[in-house]
């Protein structure tokens, strides 16, 4: 259980943020089913999507228990409106038909998620530490997959290199959301539940710099846009995503299969 000085409200919020990142990125990746250039890559993307969905389920279940309001993982995933989602804007960007952009999103997200999970294995919150220990191996594979494709496209043909560079440039302003901290983050960091976001940053920088250099790509010079996703203020894309993702559950509340 959490340290005594952590309020379950803060903890709920902290867990929900990570759960929503995993859930929404998972959904964006499932949209690729049947669209990848080869059946083999279709399978790889679906595997990653399912890994992320598994992580989201563990985190959402824990969040629901912390909230203690009678909601379960399904209620949190399928019955919350857009403003109650806490994911960063990076993971909600549409990627289908833009494989380069999908890879750029997966790369920048996983480069954060891997060191984040590594730190969380030492969290003062035992449940989070256990979830992180299970998830970190999956996330490492996701990072390797994204890095391998960044390398192939960046260090590929002139055309693929230009597209990969453009994709990195496009998503770059959103890549820094994950490092933003508010009072909730600070309280959770003080209690040893979450790592300091800035402590994760050197690992992220190192991973991104290495992958981009190997791929002969240029790290964008521009800065990050201030993030709003943790406050529930999203880009226009999340609403459409939720409308699709939640439609079956809303049509058949409580359905089991």
């Amino acid at each position: 259980m959490a340290s005594p000085q952590v309020s379950s409200v803060d903890l709920f919020e902290g867990v929900l943020r990570m759960a929503d990142d995993a859930l929404i990125l998972s959904h964006r990746m499932t949209e690729w089913a049947s669209w990848a250039p080869q059946l083999e890559e279709d399978m790889a993307l679906a595997n990653i999507a399912l890994d992320l969905l598994g992580q989201a389920r563990l985190l959402l279940t824990y969040a629901a228990e912390l909230e203690g309001a009678g909601r379960d993982e399904d209620a949190l995933a399928f019955l919350r409106p857009e403003r109650e989602f806490r994911c960063v804007l990076l993971v909600e960007q549409p990627t289908v038909h833009h494989f380069d952009r999908l890879i750029a999103v997966l790369l920048t997200f996983s480069a954060w998620w891997v060191p984040m999970l590594q730190s969380l294995t030492r969290s003062s919150d035992v449940r989070l530490a256990e979830i992180a220990a299970k998830s970190v191996k999956e996330a490492r594979y996701h990072l390797e997959h994204a890095a391998a494709w960044t390398n192939r496209l960046g260090d590929g043909t002139a055309y693929s290199r230009a597209r990969m560079q453009q994709a990195v440039d496009e998503i770059w302003p959103l890549a820094g959301d994950v490092f933003e901290a508010d009072e909730i983050t600070e309280r959770l960091v003080c209690a040893g539940v979450l790592p300091d976001p800035e402590a994760i940053r050197p690992a992220w920088d190192a991973a991104i710099d290495q992958v981009l250099a190997e791929a002969t790509l240029v790290r964008p010079a521009r800065g990050f846009r201030p993030g709003t996703g943790r406050r529930g203020v999203h880009s226009e894309h999340l609403g459409y995503l939720l409308a699709e993702m939640q439609s079956v559950h809303r049509m058949h509340p409580g359905a089991q299969w």
Binding site: H97, R101, Y159, E170, I171, R225
Partner: peptide, 17 residues
């Protein structure tokens, strides 16, 4: 992120290339 979204909405389908 307007540049990415705008292009996505406008393009919809992959280019012929």
């Amino acid at each position: 992120m307007t540049s990415a979204s705008g292009e996505s909405a406008a393009t919809g389908q992959p280019a012929a290339t």
